[in-house]
Design a protein around this nucleic acid. Sequence first.
RNA 1: GCCGAUGUAGCUCAAUGGUAGAGCACGGCUUUCGUAAAGCCGGGGUUGAGGGUUCGAGUCCCUCCAUCGGCUCCA
Length: 726
Amino acid sequence: MVTVRLPDGREVQHPDGVSLMQILQAIGPGLAKAAVAARVNGETRELFSTLSNTTVELQALKLDDPAALQMARHSTAHVMAEAICALWPQTKLVYGPPVDGGFYYDIDLDHKLTPEDFPRIEERMAAIVKEDRPFTRYEVPRDAGMKKLVAEGNDYKVDNAQRADGDVLSFYVTGQPNSGCWEDLCKGPHVPSTGRIGAFKILQVAGAYHHGDANKKQLQRVYGTTFPDKKLLQAHLDQIEEAKKRDHRKIGQELGLFTLDAMVGTGLVLWKPRGAVIRYTLENFIRGELVRRGYQPVYTPHIGRLELYRTSGHFPYYKDSQYPPIFDNDTARFLNDLWEATVERKDAAGFNAGEQRALQRLDDLDPEIRTTLKTRGFSDEGGKADRNQNAIRTMLAESDGYLLKPMNCPMHMRIYGSEPRSYRDLPIRLAEFGTVYRYEQSGEVNGLTRVRGFTQDDAHLFCTPDQVEQEMADCVDLTRLVLKTLGMNDYRVRIGLRGDGDKFIGAREDWDQAEEAVRRAVKKADMSATEAAGEAAFYGPKIDFIVKDCIGRDWQLGTVQIDYNNPKRFNLRYIGDDNAEHRPVMIHRAPFGSLERFCGILIEHFEGAFPTWLAPVQAAVCSVSEKSEAYARDVFALCQQAGLRVELDASSERIGAKIRRATLEKTPYVLVIGEQEVAGRSVNVRTRSGAQLGNFTIPEFLHAVAQEIAERRLTLLATASGAAPG
RNA sequence: GCCGAUGUAGCUCAAUGGUAGAGCACGGCUUUCGUAAAGCCGGGGUUGAGGGUUCGAGUCCCUCCAUCGGCUCCA
């Protein structure tokens, strides 16, 4: 006997083996029709599952329930897969889970799907929905199931089955079993039938590696989403479109903040005057904090010897993500030419023209290089391109040269090491807006959020082991201050731990010690954070502040990292109170992370409407006509002298057009100057959000705005009714 | 780096394989106006670059470059 307790407190009883669907039908056919799943004792179950000999709490779930919607999305993935298989029978299905906001299905298909195929697929899906076929689960013993899958010849599904837990394998037929209907290996659960999946849409198709392995065959990943009804689906699509209006690349272009120029190079940012204002204002904000917190500014060069980065472990550890070394004599250029020449015709039997030229230069230039190359295996017999390339590569790796700096810490460590240090000096906090260069993969470069040259608001703190916890907590505090000041409250904190893997340097004990210190610092700062194994820096664990961009991608901004390894590599020391040498601990920290990425996210955060203290232009002085132009010029000059970033619009446009232009540029204040203002020696203040604040004397206005700026307020000056929205 | 899509004036976009266009922006002139767009006129292009097919290419094909979306990576 099954006893079911319903949400309204009612209890009903059913015989053993009753399905959830039957229970719901007994309550009411309307409910059974509307429900797609049920929650049984808190667990989401599909309606064809049965109960026996139990007492449960049961709640019917419609598509408006998140768990039920998740289920429907998974079911939609099946419907889509069936449609694709129907249209392209050679399709091999791989894996099709629900994800945040929708679902995808990975397929292996030679025909490259394009958005033009989507309507056909959707049409087919609609037909499957119309047939309203049940999702029927059946289970077979593991061995039999494997046999069946092997016979079907889809290696991916065999692979999936091998990874699945349990003694049985489950399949879902879209229809009655043994009816020839489409079926798929799947652990479920599903909605009752194809007619219940809701409103769906295929969104995009993209490449994806099988099991995330770049060495394996690339699959096609078809993305889609499902909502309870068409209206909600459309609302979701509209919301995506709306979010795209915040895109920093779009706003950066519209407001003239920065530009990315193919001639300058991929991922290299040109800050235009208006964007530069935002950046240097943020820099100055931090500088003020650093003074208060006992940091000392330093400056270091943009390149440094390979020896430096060999010592730190950056080279050749991250060789592939660095710009190639710069060599300090003709050797590099020559080796490069020789390399190019050997690449040119790798399979040639003899020397090609390029190789011959290079070899000629080899003789002319420096017999010693030729000798060195030969000892590295270089052959001048021709047709040995691979061997020769290896010789050149080896020689390049062994040569001394300079690297565009990928990180600031090695240079800061050399500053620390440049004089003897006492425990009385610690902690030493060296700060620099340090520009670094990393050769990010071409497919990764993205607006301001992922670039190849960027500036970190970097600092390295050298301290005694017992200072670590406090210093880290202070760094976390500074990062939170920065985010709070800008009203960025939508972030999460992640502790990156070592985990397994071979990409980390240093002794296990040091790591354990460091990871404990990080945990204690987070606790001390009273923050909630998730831990992620394998997300540490290569030299130590870290605390990352992570935010989302306008299309939901995660980006790391601020970071606090602890490093027991590099002080060892650079043999950093201090003299303790016991008059013996000790090893300092180093903390890397950057509250913004990279100025580029931070500004990118900030643009999206404010949708380009920066608070006054950050706004590129803080006020636009607009004359109504020629009669008020002279006074408008006075107002402009007075504002500028008071330190306000102000612009003058004395053109012959109408006042409405001037206001419109300033408003579209998101200038916080428009000062309308007409004959009334001339007469009253005043300014009429309007905000970008359309609020009219009335007339101020110039000193009144300057005073009010100066205060707003000094306080770094996030809202504009207000009328009596309250703050004008940003 | 991989898969796919895209690339036309400063910006947003048109243009059956058959004379490259519009709006905004920009320049000139007229207008001097009170809270989100005055009017007229004008200048702007090796259609991302280079090859190919064709009588003829923005349009079809190839290579490269750049951008976008995923994947992978991210000190």
